[in-house]
Nucleic acid binder design. Structure first.
Length: 597
RNA sequence: GGGGGAGUGGCCUAGUGGUUUAGGGCGCUGGCCUGUCACGCCGGAGGUCGCGGGUUCAAAUCCCGUCUCUCUCGCCA
């Protein structure tokens, strides 16, 4: 390697981003700045793929044009930082790399400025091999240079921009709410921040801006949104980070459908803007009870049309001990049809049985219609005629497979829901390019918390019950439906919201319902109850998970691929090392002492 | 808190008790090459096989412990 020293910019100005150059730029003199993505040194001719956040363009150094320039270019190595001035021209030889957006153009270099060198890399920027994720996080600044990551980050920007444009056009204010807030008793664990000036007291980081956005409605600000960071001190997953971002929305003087329509507009706008995909103006809606009955899930994946059907009546008493016993215990027999799998092998059916096992369904039965025949282990109990009637009723034609199981109604549906998805997955029926949206509505108000032996709010305790069910709040609380709604995309919960309570009396009833004493309610949420007494308007809102939304649009399975600096599964930021120990001096300042076991 | 998977030069990996002096690719490096495009060709450096202990004549390979990464159940109003 010959000697050289990095140069200053010296007033150089970039004229173009690498990835933006096209045939129409041929003949222009351009100044580019970026990184050496690849070099191809042919001896006498050097090709450099120059990369910046926009993409890659080929640059050419020809020894015959300038020997001095050529010598300088020969020291370039991967990820050197350079500025290049040259003539953009149509490629002399057509590119073999047809995927390259800049394939029609190359830059004949006239000036090269080496702005910085680069040591051999701990992870490679080229995308042929993917380094261990821990290493990627430690060297995130290199990882983010990958075209795919740059694309994801750009997409995220585009989405947030699009969200802001949309809500602005609809008369929403973007309002920041506090990050240092009061700890709340319900829900996830809070991150705590000790207060230096208030010894022994703590802030919490917000799990959501819920109460503040409701205060904004009481304030008469009418329409609020925020790209809001939220914090939950719970264990991590591929789709769960301790800090995550929500598109948080609240509106006054509206009912449920006004919110749904507003969000349908947003989704339509977003998908057109980012993917060029036309989402229906009105999205399908389904009550929670129906979603569980038909799909065994409160977030059904509608890309798969295998619908769970209750065939208890059709099958009736068969003489088959297992099914008859189930019937006697008041259990149900349910199943669904797998299209085109009537000829499935024993091995495939065994695989489906494994799916059943994983969903804690010990017994899975099959009825196969194949080339005019009916095959089933149940045949000797059902008889061929009944089996056929069952198939017809379920919509199973020749060539299809019926999957059946018995159990307690609700758990059976849930288990079959899992099996349904596993089978669909194994048959590659889940097309990632297909986007099936669904509003799940009429969620239950409460669920029973076994451990704490009390009711808890299924959504959150600020959710209004459906007015028609409110009279059952005390007498039959588990039957009360809430004015809550989820937006589901391909089996993934994208958004969750509700019509809020805006009257003190109703809010007190709900707090009481979840076992919060008057004193506790007053201590934790007194300001909310007080505020409701001063002319709180009817209001409703929703929050969309920006990370998941972006991941789905980007075609990524992990939200870490669309977050610039995510944390690992232990909640550690491998780049900075956070969380870290602090000095005794710092601890003393915030009046804290360790008590480590 | 529980369960599964993984850890081999800077990176990705092959190797499941002895043919291993741990093989290949990328990267790095010396040389050749004027139209490559994951350029090509010839050479070179770089490894206590995560760490500690054990079993064995012999351990990257089997066992135990431990650390790290990852997936997952619980948890996530």
């Amino acid at each position: 390697m010959s000697e050289y020293s990095p140069e200053p910019l010296n007033g150089l100005k970039r004229t173009d981003y690498c990835g933006d150059l096209r045939l129409k730029d041929a003949g222009r003199k351009v100044t580019l700045m970026g990184w050496v993505h690849r070099r191809r040194d042919l001896g006498g001719l050097i090709f450099i793929e120059l990369r910046d956040r926009s993409g890659i363009v080929q640059c050419v150094f020809d020894q015959n044009v300038s020997n001095e320039l050529f010598e300088k270019a020969s020291v370039l190595r991967n990820e050197f930082t350079v500025a290049i001035i040259g003539q953009a021209d149509q490629r002399k030889v057509p590119a073999k790399n047809a995927d390259l957006a800049t394939k029609d153009i190359e830059v004949n270099v006239e000036e090269l400025h080496i702005l910085n060198t680069c040591k051999p890399l701990p992870i490679q920027v080229s995308e042929e091999q993917v380094a261990d994720e821990g290493l990627r996080m430690k060297y995130r600044y290199i990882d983010l240079r990958k075209p795919r990551m740059a694309r994801n980050i750009a997409l995220r920007h585009k989405i947030t921009k699009s969200v802001r444009d949309y809500f602005d056009s609809k008369g929403f204010y973007e309002i920041e709410t506090p990050i240092l807030v009061a700890s709340t008793p319900e829900g996830a664990r809070d991150y705590l921040v000790p207060s230096r000036v208030n010894p022994g007291k703590f802030y919490a980081l917000p799990q959501s801006p819920q109460l503040y956005k409701q205060m904004l409605m009481v304030s008469g600000l009418d329409r609020y949104f925020q790209i809001a960071r939220c914090f939950r001190d719970e264990d991590l997953r591929a789709d769960r980070q301790p800090e995550f971002t929500q598109i948080d929305v609240e509106m006054s003087f509206v009912e449920r459908d006004d919110v749904l329509e507003m969000i349908e507009g947003l989704i339509h706008h977003l998908f057109t803007d980012t993917l060029g995909i036309e989402v229906p103006a009105k999205l399908q809606r389904m009550p929670y009870s129906e979603a569980l009955e038909k799909y065994g899930s409160d977030k059904p994946d509608l890309r798969v049309d295998m619908v769970i059907q209750d065939v208890t009546e059709t099958i009736g008493k068969t003489g088959f001990v297992i099914l008859d016993n189930a019937l006697e215990q008041g259990q149900k027999i349910k199943g669904f049809v797998v299209k085109g799998k009537g000829g499935s092998t024993r091995k495939e059916q065994d695989k489906y049985k494994d799916f059943g096992q994983n969903a804690s369904l010990p017994g899975l039965f099959f009825i196969a219609r194949h080339e005019g025949n009916v095959k089933s282990s149940l045949l000797k109990y059902l008889g061929e005629e009944k089996a056929l009637t069952l198939c017809e009723k379920m919509g199973a034609e020749d060539g299809d497979l019926v999957v059946l199981a018995a159990g307690e109604s609700r758990p059976l549906s849930v288990a079959l829901g899992k099996v349904r998805l596993d089978i669909a997955n194994s048959l590659n029926l889940l097309n990632p390019q297909e986007y099936k949206f669904l509003w799940v509505v009429d969620f239950p108000m409460y669920s029973w918390n076994e451990e704490e032996n009390r009711l808890e709010a299924e959504h959150h305790p600020f959710t209004s019950p459906l007015p028609s069910d409110a009279d059952k709040l005390e007498s039959a609380p588990l039957e009360v439906r809430a004015a809550a709604y989820d937006l589901v995309l391909n089996g993934c919960e994208l958004a969750s919201g509700s019509v809020r309570i805006h009257q003190r009396e109703m809010q007190e009833r709900i707090f009481k319902g979840i076992g919060l004493s008057i004193e506790e309610a007053e201590a934790k949420f007194g300001f909310l109850l007080t505020a409701f007494g001063y002319g709180a308007p009817p209001h409703a809102g929703i929050a969309l998970g920006l990370d998941r939304l972006t991941a789905i649009i980007a075609g990524e399975t992990s939200i870490r691929e669309v977050i610039a600096f995510p944390k690992n599964t232990n909640g550690i930021d491998l780049l900075s090392g956070a969380p870290v120990t602090v000095t005794d001096e710092q601890m003393k300042l915030v009046h804290l002492k360790y008590d480590l076991d």
